[in-house]
């Protein structure tokens, strides 16, 4: 009886220690349970929402009195930090939030290499009469360009580490080169190394 109880108990302990996994949907605005430094989904979402709201509130991209819409394209994001990032993920989210914020009041141009290739190919096919439609409009020029950068300051001392990340966006007038809007998003993490990894 005692042997059986001990065996069952040990098996229970082994199963408890070795088992148990999960696969759960979580709120992308919630703090990441997969820890580590660097931008998390909540940062990317918050950043995009804030930037889109701020750039709209600032008014630089508002339509003129005669209703003409301003145009801009998102150029690039330079990563000067110590965290690799998927730059297209950040910029695509920002572009979507800008689009939603302005609801058609501003022209957002797609100047990606892929889009340029598609436009060129379509225009050529129209010229040759291979497809319907005419090239009766010019390619849209841009009034502004939106750029981003990500920088970090990392400090390491013994078992402690801190990482400060600064993501900055700026809108530049493509006629005058004037910096017409800028804003940033900051985050900081601190980590303590476990004794088992020291």
């Amino acid at each position: 009886m005692l042997t059986r109880s001990v065996t069952v108990g040990l098996l229970g302990l082994l199963l408890t220690a070795c088992g148990s996994t999960r696969d759960t949907r979580v709120n992308p605005d919630a703090a990441d349970s997969v820890t580590g430094t660097g931008l998390q989904s909540m940062d990317i979402r918050t950043m995009a929402t804030r930037m889109a709201a701020d750039i709209k509130e600032y008014g630089i991209l508002a339509p003129s009195r005669d209703g003409a819409r301003a145009s801009f394209f998102i150029y690039e994001m330079v990563n000067d930090s110590s965290d690799t990032i998927d730059k297209t993920l950040v910029l695509t989210k920002l572009r979507t939030d800008l689009f939603k914020a302005f609801r058609g009041q501003v022209k957002i141009l797609d100047r990606s290499a892929n889009a340029n290739d598609l436009v060129d190919a379509e225009r050529r096919m129209k010229e040759r009469g291979q497809v319907s439609g005419e090239n009766n409009r010019k390619l849209a020029g841009s009034d502004f360009v939106l750029k981003g950068s990500m920088k970090s300051r990392d400090r390491l001392a013994g078992k402690l580490k801190s990482s400060y990340i600064l993501v900055t966006f700026e809108l530049t007038d493509l006629v005058t080169s004037e910096l017409v809007w800028t804003n940033d998003y900051e985050m900081k993490t601190e980590s303590e190394k476990s004794v088992i990894n020291r």
Partner: peptide, 21 residues
């Protein structure tokens, strides 16, 4: 084609190299 992300990886590597006891 992302030398900036390449440098980010290296900066992280340099920090990790500094973790030696």
């Amino acid at each position: 084609g992302e030398p900036d992300n390449a440098r980010a990886a290296l900066k992280r590597g340099i920090l990790m190299d500094a973790e030696v006891a």
